[in-house]
Simulated assay, not measured.
Amino acid sequence: MKVSDLIAELLNAAEKSAELARAIRREESLFHLLIEEKTGDDKNKRFGFDFKTLADVLVQEMIRFDLNKKFSGIGKRVTGEENNKFTNFAGDKFSLEIKDNKKKTTALLCKILDGNDRAATTLANLVHEDVTVPRPPELEKLESLELDKKEIGIWIDPIDGTAEYISGSRDPEFRPGENISQNGLPNVTVLIGVYERSTGLPIIGVINQPFFKTEDGKIWSGRMVWGACIGDARVTSVPHGRDQPPVGEAEKPAVVTSMSDCKKLGTYLCENFDILTAPGAGYKLLCVIDRLCSAYVLSKDNTYRWDTCAPHAILRSQGGGVVKHQQALTADLSGGGGSGGGACDKALRDLQLTYHKAEPKASGSNAWCNMQGVIAYSDPKVLQRLVASLTKK
C-alpha cells in the first residue's frame, strides 16, 4: 500500500474520532451513560481509579473497522489501550465491535446500553458516518513510498486524557497555540501511531486535539498534526518542524513534566530549565512537537506504548525523538549531537523507544508500559543538556 494513502486514511480516522468525542461530550445525558471503572490488569497505575468510557472503545474499534475496510487485513495489526469487553448496567458482558452496517451496530449498542435505543442510534449514526479530510499537499513528497501492511503495527490511544475528558473543564489562562493548558478539554488527544514490526521504530504519527479552541465555551473545534519518518524521508504537517533553529546554549529551555514528578525533577533541572506541568501524556508530547517546550521528562513508569508511539513518530520527522529515561542517564551522548554521524548518533538510535515487544514478566496493560520513564526532545542538544543536569552530582 502507498504511504500517502495510509496517512490520508489515518487522518480521516482521527478526525472522525474527534467528531465522535465532541458529539458525545455535547450530549450530557448520553455522556453520563458511558462511564465504566477499569479494574484489575486494565487499571491504569496513574490514578487511584481510572475510567473506560464507551467513547474510548467506540473510537478504538471504529478506527480498526474503517482502516480494515480500506486496507483489508490491517485491522488485526491495530492495538489499542482499551479492552473491547464491555459490561452493561445489568451485568451482561459484550464484546464491542463495529458491525458491517448501521442496523447491526445499533442493535449491539442497544444491548450494551440496556435498551436505550435513542443513545444506540445516535452513536451508530456517528460511527458509520463518512468523514473525509482534505488530502494534505505534503503527502506528495511520499507518493513513491510503499509499505507492506504485514510489516507494520498500529498503536491507538482513542481518547488520551480521559479524566480531563470526563471533567470537561477548561484552563481560563489557556491561549491556543501560545501557551500550555494546565487542565481540561484542550489536554485531550486522539493518538494513532504506526511502527515497523521488524525494528519497533515509529514511522507515522497522527495526533488530533478535538478540543483545541472554543469561542463560546460550548462549541469546540479541533486540529490535527502528523508526521512520517520512513527511511530517509521525513515529512511533517507542523510548519516549523525540522527547520526550527537549534536551542541556543545561552537559553533556558522549558521542560514539561507531570505534577507527581515536578518536585523531584525540579531539584536537578531548575538551574538550567524552566519546569512546567500539564495533564495528559499525549498532550505533553504534543507541546514538545509544537515547540511550546523543548522537552518532556518523566522518570516514572507512567506512560504506555499507545501514549508515545504517534508523538514519537512526529518528533522523529522533526529531528527529535523519545528515549528511555533511565537508560539515557548512563549513555554517552557527548559529541555528534545528531549531526549525522558519530557515537552520539548511534547512542540516540539505541535509546529510542520501540513498540514491537512487550515488557518481560509483565501482564495486562503493564506489558506495554514504558518502564524506564521517557524523555521526549525536540533537538538532540536539548537531550544532552537534560542528561547533564539530571546526572549532575
Rank of each mutant, 00 (worst) to 15 (best):
A124E: 08
E173Y: 09
S299K: 02
L6N: 13
G320C: 01
A358N: 07
K264C: 06
E28Q: 07
A376R: 05
R26L: 05
K393T: 13
C270N: 04
I154Y: 11
I219F: 04
V225Y: 01
L333R: 01
K102Q: 14
E151A: 13
N366V: 10
T236I: 10
C293Y: 03
I98N: 10
V374K: 03
G115P: 08
L34V: 07
N187C: 15
I230G: 06
A254Y: 00
G193W: 02
I159M: 14
R242P: 10
A295R: 02
A18H: 00
H356S: 11
F174V: 03
P380A: 12
E143I: 07
C229Q: 13
K252A: 02
S339C: 09
L286H: 02
G340Q: 02
G153P: 10
K300L: 12
T257H: 03
G338W: 09
P137I: 08
G193V: 03
A23H: 11
A347Q: 00
G200S: 04
R223F: 00
A254W: 01
E215P: 00
G320D: 02
N88G: 06
F174G: 05
M224I: 13
G338C: 09
K149Y: 00
L142P: 11
G337V: 07
E215N: 15
A55D: 09
F51G: 09
D148E: 15
K93V: 15
C270W: 01
N183G: 04
P172T: 02
Y304N: 02
P158R: 07
D232W: 09
R77Y: 08
N302Q: 14
H128A: 11
K103G: 03
L54T: 09
R305F: 14
P311R: 00
L201N: 04
K361W: 00
D307N: 07
F273S: 04
I156R: 14
L34H: 04
K38V: 13
H325T: 03
A120M: 08
M371F: 15
M259F: 09
T308L: 02
L108Y: 08
I63G: 11
P239F: 12
S260R: 03
Q182F: 00
K361F: 12
I375W: 10
T87N: 13
L185F: 07
C344G: 12
V190L: 05
G115E: 09
Q352H: 12
K324D: 04
K93L: 15
T214Q: 04
G168K: 03
D41T: 11
L386W: 10
C110P: 00
Y165W: 14
D261G: 07
V297G: 01
V188C: 07
Q372H: 14
I156F: 14
A18P: 06
G115R: 11
D171W: 06
E173I: 05
L123S: 13
Q244D: 10
T39Y: 14
F47S: 13
I98D: 12
A343L: 08
G161M: 08
S29R: 12
K102H: 10
K16T: 07
P380W: 12
P239T: 11
K263P: 03
S294E: 05
N83H: 14
T189N: 10
K2A: 08
E249I: 10
R223C: 05
L353T: 04
V238P: 05
I24F: 09
G80E: 15
Y355N: 02
E19S: 11
T236V: 08
E359W: 11
E146D: 13
N208L: 00
D157S: 07
A23L: 11
P202T: 04
